[in-house]
Amino acid sequence: MDGRNRSSLTTIHLLGFQTQHSIAFFIFFLLLIIYCFTICGNLLIITLVSYNKSLHSPMYFFLSQLSISDILIATDILPNTLHAVLMKGTIISFSDCISQFYFFGVSETSECLLLTVMCYDRYVAVCRPLHYTLAMNFQFCYKMILICWVLSVSMELVLTVPISQLIFCDLNVIDHFFCDLYPILQLSCSDTSFVQLEATFLGFLFIAIPFFIIIVSYVYIIITIFKIPSITSRQRVFSTCSSHLTVVCIYYGTLLCVYLIPSRGKSWDITKFLSFLYTVATPLMNPIIYSLRNKDLNRSVDKISHYWQGLLCGKP
């Protein structure tokens, strides 16, 4: 390859969002607010689930793990994006770019697996309520969480290591706001067919199959809900699943549009927007959706608010 190797590419220039200078500061502060709310909202859920005994159930345990995944992806993506908005692009090292892609992949894979496990939890709760306590014991929940994170960390290594071994050209400009798979592969001078085949296989394994499992599970859940004679009971049961279903629709809808719809004819602006939805908007929306539609979380927040108000007013 003309004597070039992967060490010839030492830096990556991320273009980010190419916006007018007049609105650059507005976008910067908007993204900064999103980042702060994402971190605070997800940390609040983790804290509530950890310290409130009424939330010590499988559903909230899985939700706290989902919040950890959201914090990971927001911290991986947004700091560089904020810098790129202010500076009309940002320059990072090649190793940092690969690291960003790795942690992005870990968080996205874990999110897919966690949403699937949460769906199974709702399936057992609605369709097999008599077996719920036995099936969803905490030993089983801990095993599921461990499997989700181990698979995410190990499988992403399987994809990231071959990418880091590719031969890259002198061109180092990526028209994106983070180091995603296909923008990185476009910089390579070597044959990337094996990596693309590997990415397709892993995408089918960790995106398509979990999505199929979720769809089938919700078909059974909806059928079971319609069999409930009382309308009030139907609404109560469906409300326990609606938050999860909303998050699944937003997350998988954008994820499938980016990675499963052919990129030919799809502009980078559309790709950036869709990528923004599942890397930035979804981690922000998750705590909002769950807190707005969940009475247990709302009660826990009220208890903490009253507790701190009592401390500030000098009441024990």
Rank of each mutant, 00 (worst) to 15 (best):
T279Q: 11
F211M: 08
Q20H: 10
I213S: 11
P58F: 01
T200H: 06
Q20V: 02
C112H: 12
Q65R: 09
L311R: 05
F178C: 01
Q196L: 15
I163L: 10
K266L: 11
I221A: 06
I288A: 00
L312P: 04
A281M: 15
F168C: 04
P58K: 01
F211E: 03
L72K: 03
L256K: 04
T246Y: 03
I167P: 02
L86E: 09
V173W: 14
R299A: 01
D180N: 11
L171A: 14
Q165K: 14
T11H: 14
I231Q: 10
D121L: 01
F104Q: 03
L292E: 06
S230H: 05
D2A: 08
S217H: 10
P58E: 01
I222Q: 07
L256D: 00
P283Y: 02
S57W: 00
L187Y: 11
Y252N: 14
V301P: 02
R122F: 09
L256C: 06
I221D: 04
V173N: 14
S217D: 14
H306N: 11
C169F: 05
V150Y: 06
I221H: 06
D175E: 15
L166T: 03
A281I: 13
M118S: 14
D121H: 08
P283D: 00
L292A: 11
Q186K: 04
F104H: 02
Y220F: 15
I207Q: 11
Y132G: 06
I228Q: 09
L157S: 07
K227C: 08
M59G: 02
F26W: 08
N298Q: 13
N42T: 08
L205R: 00
G41T: 05
H306I: 07
R4H: 11
N172P: 06
L205G: 00
Y51P: 06
N80E: 06
V301A: 00
S243D: 12
V124K: 13
F29H: 15
R264G: 04
S57I: 02
T279N: 12
Y220W: 08
G3F: 07
L30A: 11
L187D: 12
W268S: 12
N5S: 10
T279M: 12
R293K: 09
S291K: 07
K143W: 15
V158Q: 04
G203V: 00
A281P: 13
I209Q: 09
K272M: 13
D121G: 03
C179S: 12
P162Y: 11
C189G: 10
F104K: 00
R6L: 01
